[in-house]
Design a protein around this nucleic acid. Structure first.
Lengths: 244, 244
DNA sequence: GCATGAGGTTGATCTGGATCAAAGAATTTG
DNA sequence: CAAATTCTTTGATCCAGATCAACCTCATGC
């Protein structure tokens, strides 16, 4: 699950601010982790963890995008979470996960052995508290997504996805300009996230483009032209949008 | 959210075992809460909490069924959680909720003021730890449901729902016999849970009945005749079923 | 440069569930 | 127990999105 971990405010080499450890964490706590971190990289498309795998490490996403997904017997799959930089992989107190984690783009993880990390959690109540908060955030996001999957139209799903993606992304270094973003996922991956097919995703993207709500650069870059119209298309009321 | 709270192993008047406090809780901790609990009852259909409400109490469901749900601007709604006896309402550290809680049947809650409850949580690390576990269970359940909402057919949704309901219910006092259960929800409520319409729910129920997988008593009672066939119809593999 | 392959678009057709409609149970009310 | 109300079933029709099928457009490699 992606509760944001984080080693540290002062985790020097990582360009992200790990999120599992809060601002109140002092140097002593952080330095406990400082010595034991390792980096792992994965190529786009590579599996990071399989369902049922032993969780030997926990990690923050430093670079790239990873996906949590579940699969039915006959191969239909559904993404159940999206991991962006600073998001966390691993569940405090659990040795296993019930979904697959796959690299969507090339991914760099900042990893810590699970055991010492859990000791840190056990020894520092406010870190445990922080992890609880993050789990609850995840739960909120999952429930927003349930509403999307169960009741929204294809158009609303796409609009909601773009809005969510923009909100989670636009303070990051990967932002290419004002309201302009890199879309690191293929149509197929987006379809898996939204419970649609890739053809429907393509059609809806292009229909929003035709209406002047968004526009594409080189297909990896897109710009939200009319943020109000985009929000209008989500089906959400006033400001109750997805944050995940 | 329904992480199971619980006052106690020895919470004498409640016929349930509250779940937020674990077996390791000793008498001293429990007695902290013992003095401050109150019971609230709600009629079927009554709202228990509205989205955005201040959370002045946390509570365990003692009797009946309640639902968490979210609503779009135009009124479409999606249930995002089902609260059965011993489930918990309230989120440690949060003063607000982002969904509505409604009584599905007549409901009795065992309530505690939020503030003293949170003090108990803060003072007893293993209770906090238990709550974290419960939040993670919820998250797993929410993700299972995302798979259901995004990728399952109507038939698979109904089969999964019955299986889930049976699993969560069949040790309870409300079980009417072996594999026989009371269904406390209307077709409409089930539809809202599964992202379907009430007509489709009715048709699928009757088609499973016609095939001899389940049978009805007086429409509030149903029996799973062929558990294997039911599981077969869920689309899940081997034993990776919903637990929620 | 051309070949190869991965991703994306676009069109035609099909279909699972939604929607619309009406007629039964069951339960509650008076 | 008749009337009203709330649920449920069942049928007919419709349509959003899936499916099937080309074709297009980039990258990347040789």
């Amino acid at each position: 699950m992606q509760i944001a971990l984080t080693a540290a405010v002062r985790c020097a080499e990582c360009p992200i601010r790990h999120r599992a450890v809060c601002a109140r964490c002092d140097d002593d706590e952080l330095s406990l982790l400082e010595g034991m971190k390792t980096y792992k990289t994965f190529k786009a498309g590579q599996p990071i963890l399989w369902r049922g795998d032993d969780l030997v490490f926990v990690a923050s996403v430093v670079q790239g995008v990873a996906a949590l997904s579940k699969t039915l017997e006959d191969g239909r799959t559904q993404m159940v979470g999206l991991l962006l930089p600073s998001d966390f992989i691993g569940r405090p107190g659990r040795g296993q996960i019930d979904f697959d984690v796959t690299a969507t783009t090339d991914v760099t993880l900042c990893c810590f052995d699970r055991k010492p990390f859990e000791k840190l959690v056990d020894d520092t109540p406010h870190v445990a508290h922080r992890l609880m908060e993050l789990a609850l955030d995840e739960l909120d996001a999952a429930r927003d997504w349930m509403l999307l999957l169960g009741r929204k139209t294809a158009r609303e799903k796409i609009a909601t996805f773009i809005q969510m993606f923009v909100r989670r992304t636009h303070t990051d270094e990967q932002a290419a300009g004002p309201d302009q973003f890199n879309m690191p996922m293929t149509r197929d991956q987006i379809a898996n996230y939204l419970g649609l097919t890739l053809e429907t995703v393509s059609r809806q993207f292009n229909s929003l483009k035709k209406e002047g709500v968004i526009s594409f650069g080189d297909r990896k870059t897109f710009t939200v032209v009319d943020m109000a119209a985009l929000h209008n298309a989500t089906g959400d009321d006033a400001d109750g949008g997805m944050i995940d």
